[in-house]
Design a protein around this nucleic acid. Structure first.
Lengths: 361, 361
DNA sequence: TTGTATGCGTTATCAT
DNA sequence: ATGATAACGCATACAA
C-alpha cells in the first residue's frame, strides 16, 4: 500500500460505519440504504479510496487479471501482429476492470508459467498464442482447470476448447482463385512457418485452388518462414530474377509483402501491372494511412483482410465470458471469414510476363 | 486458488512443521537447518507448492509487478517500436520474478490509472512511455511516491526523475552531416509527431547540422507525423514529384522509410544512387533478416541505430534497481549514443539529381 | 533452530 | 439495514 493510502477501515471510521457496510455499499449490494450508499460513495471519492487488489483477490479468489505468455525465442510474437492483437484484447480488459499480465519466457519454460499462474492464482485465465498442431498446452491447461481461449486452432477436431480463428484455408483458396481468374498460373506462395497451424491451413487453401483449377503445384514456388520484411524481399529477388519467374505472389502478411514490393522496385517492376501481389492483411495499424475525413482511402495491397486487433477484442470477450460461466460450459468456437479487398497490387496477367523479361535495373 | 492447490498450511502439516519454518526454509532464511530445508524444498516441489501471489503481496506490501500504461488513441504505442521495447523489458522482469502488467487506456484516463496503481498497490513501479515536454505524469508519479523510469525525457533540465534516452539531437545532427559530406544539400526531414519530446530533439539536431554547414532551412522539406509506412510514402511521392525535389531523406523510423522506398520504386528511383535515405533504426526485429551463420548481413538502410529492445531491458533494470533502493536515492539517468551504420541507401550526390529528372515511370 | 501469535485489507457468514 | 466475526494465505516480530 502506498504511503498514507486510505483503506477500508479508515474510510469506515471516517463515516462512522462498519467496514462491512462500506464494502457492501461500494460493491453495489441491494440491501444497503441508498442514502448511506451515497454518503459512502462520496467519501470514497473524496478520500480517493480504492480497495487493495491483493486483499480483494485473497478474499474472493479472483485475480481480475488475464495472462499472456509470449515465447522469447521465436520473435514471431514480438512483432506487429502480436502488438495489435494485444491492443484489442487490452481494450476489453480495461473495459471490464481486468489487468493484462504478460510474461516473456523461453519456450521450454512456458508450461511452468502456466502451472505458476494456476497455483498462485495470479490470473483468472490465459490466451494461448501461436498454436501448433496438437499443441501440448491445451491438455495442460485443461488439466490445470485454468480457463483459456486459443487464438487459432490446434487441429481439425478442435472440440474440447474455446478458440477464435480466421478461416485461413478458405482465405488462401479464394486469394489464389482470384489470381487464377486474372489469368495467372504461376503463383508464388510466401507463407509463414509451416510448423504453425495457421500456416499449414493456408498452404492447403493454396493447394485447394490449384487442384480445383487443375494447375499443378510447383514446389519451387512455395516458401515458408518467419513473416518478416527481408524474407519477402529475398524470395522475390530470387524468383523474379530466375529463368521462369511467377507472375503473382500470394503472401501471408503485409510485412513480407513490403519486402516483395521493395524487390520489385529494385528490379523496375510495377505491382499490379508487371507482377501481381495479394497479401493476407491483419489490418496492422502501422501500415494504415491516417484516414482523412472519415473512412479509409483506397488500399494499397489487394488482400484477404481480417483485423487482428478485432480478433484480440473478441478473444478477450470470449475468455471473460468463460471465466464467469460454469466450469462445464460448452467451449465457444468462432471461425471468421476474411474479406477480399481489391487494392492496386493485382491486375490481369500480361502476355509478355510469361517468358523472359527485360529488366530495367 | 486453483481447486485442490496446496497452500502453506497443508504443506507444513504434511511435513510436521510449523508454517513459519516452512516459509523461512523456502525463502532462504539462514537460520533454518539445512537438513530441514532440504526436506521442505523436496516436499514443496513434489506437491507443486507455490505461494499465493495475492497473499504474499498482502503480507509484504510488494506486488512484484511493473505497470505499463499504453495510450489507446494514438496508435503510436501500439506499434512495432513499442512491442520491441516491451519484449526487452519483459525479459528482465521474468528474470527477476516480476510480472509485466499492461493497461490500455484513453489518454485522459491515464492519470487515473496511475492513482489506481498506487493506491491499490497493484504494481511496484511503472515505465512512462512517449513523454512530451513538461509531461504532467512526472509530477503526478512523484507525488504518488510510485517509482518510475521514463523512456525518453521531458525537458532539458530533467533532473528529478530517472530516465533512459537516446541522444536524438546528436544522432540527427550526425545523420544530416553524413549526408552533407556526401554532397547533399536538400535533405528532407521525415520526423515523428513534434509534440513528442524526442521528435523535437531530432528536429533540433537536423537544424544544428544545417547551421554548422551554413545551409538554410527549407520549411517545405520538414514534416512531422505518426511514424507509419504510408506517411513516408506520401511525403516521398509528393516531394520527389515536385519541381525541386530533395536529393536525400532523413527519416525518423524504418517504418516510414519503407514507405519512402516504396514511393521511389514506383517512380523508378534507386535508393543510394538516385536518392539517398538515412533512417533512425530502432533495430526492430521484424525488419531484420534472419542471421545466416551468425552475425548479421549487410544492412539495407544506412541508419543511426540504437536497439529499442535493449533500451527496454535497461529501463527495466533501472526501475527494479530503484524499487529496491531507498526512496531518496538519486535518480538514474542514461543517455545513449546511436551508432552510424552504413547500408546501401546512401551515396554521393549525383550532379544530374539537382535539376529536373527523367522519371522512368 | 523452531514455534506462536498477529497483521496485511478485503469479502462473506451469521447475527441482530 | 447494519454490525461483529471469521476466513483468505502468507510473512514476521517475538517467544522459546
Amino acid at each position: 500500500m502506498a504511503r498514507g493510502a486510505v483503506n477500508l477501515k479508515r474510510l469506515s471510521q471516517v463515516l462512522g460505519l462498519s467496514p462491512t457496510t462500506v464494502s457492501r455499499a461500494l460493491n453495489g449490494f441491494p440491501e444497503v440504504n441508498e442514502k448511506t450508499r451515497a454518503r459512502v460513495v462520496e467519501a470514497a471519492n473524496r478520500l480517493n479510496y480504492r480497495p487493495s487488489a491483493s486483499a480483494a483477490s485473497l478474499a474472493t479468489g479472483k485475480a481480475r487479471a488475464i495472462g499472456h505468455v509470449v515465447p522469447l525465442a521465436e520473435h514471431m510474437m514480438i512483432n506487429p501482429h502480436f502488438s495489435d492483437f494485444m491492443a484489442g484484447a487490452g481494450e476489453v480488459y480495461a473495459q471490464f476492470g481486468y489487468e493484462m499480465l504478460i510474461k516473456v519466457v523461453a519456450r521450454e519454460d512456458e508450461a511452468d508459467v502456466y502451472r505458476d499462474f494456476a497455483s498462485r492464482s495470479r490470473v483468472d485465465g490465459v490466451v494461448v498464442h501461436g498454436p501448433v498442431t496438437n499443441d501440448p498446452r491445451i491438455p495442460l491447461l485443461n488439466s490445470l482447470g485454468l480457463p483459456f481461449v486459443v487464438h487459432g486452432r490446434c487441429d481439425d477436431l478442435a472440440s474440447d476448447y474455446s478458440w477464435l480463428d480466421v478461416n485461413n484455408r478458405r482465405a488462401f483458396c479464394r486469394a489464389a482463385e482470384f489470381l487464377f481468374d486474372l489469368g495467372h498460373r504461376r503463383i508464388a506462395l510466401v507463407n509463414g512457418i509451416e510448423a504453425m497451424n495457421f500456416a499449414g491451413r493456408r498452404r492447403r487453401g493454396y493447394e485447394d485452388a490449384h487442384q480445383a483449377r487443375g494447375v499443378p503445384l510447383d514446389a519451387g514456388l512455395m516458401f515458408g518462414a518467419d513473416m518478416v520484411e527481408p524474407y519477402g524481399y529475398r524470395v522475390a529477388r530470387k524468383l523474379l530474377e530466375s529463368a521462369d519467374p511467377p507472375s503473382a505472389f500470394l503472401v501471408a502478411s503485409v510485412l513480407p509483402a513490403m519486402g516483395v514490393i521493395r524487390a520489385m522496385g529494385e528490379l523496375g517492376l510495377k505491382a499490379g501491372t508487371d507482377v501481381s501481389i495479394i497479401a493476407f492483411d491483419d489490418d496492422l495499424s502501422f501500415l494504415q494511412a491516417p484516414s482523412e475525413g472519415g473512412g479509409r482511402g483506397i488500399p494499397f495491397f489487394t488482400a484477404m483482410r481480417s483485423s487482428i486487433r478485432e480478433a484480440g477484442r473478441r478473444a478477450a470477450e470470449i475468455l471473460l465470458e468463460r471465466i464467469d460461466a460454469p466450469a462445464d460450459a460448452a467451449p465457444r468456437q468462432e471461425l471468421w471469414e476474411a474479406e477480399l479487398v481489391i487494392g492496386t497490387t493485382t491486375g490481369p496477367l500480361r502476355q509478355s510476363a510469361g517468358g523472359r523479361r527485360a529488366f530495367r535495373v
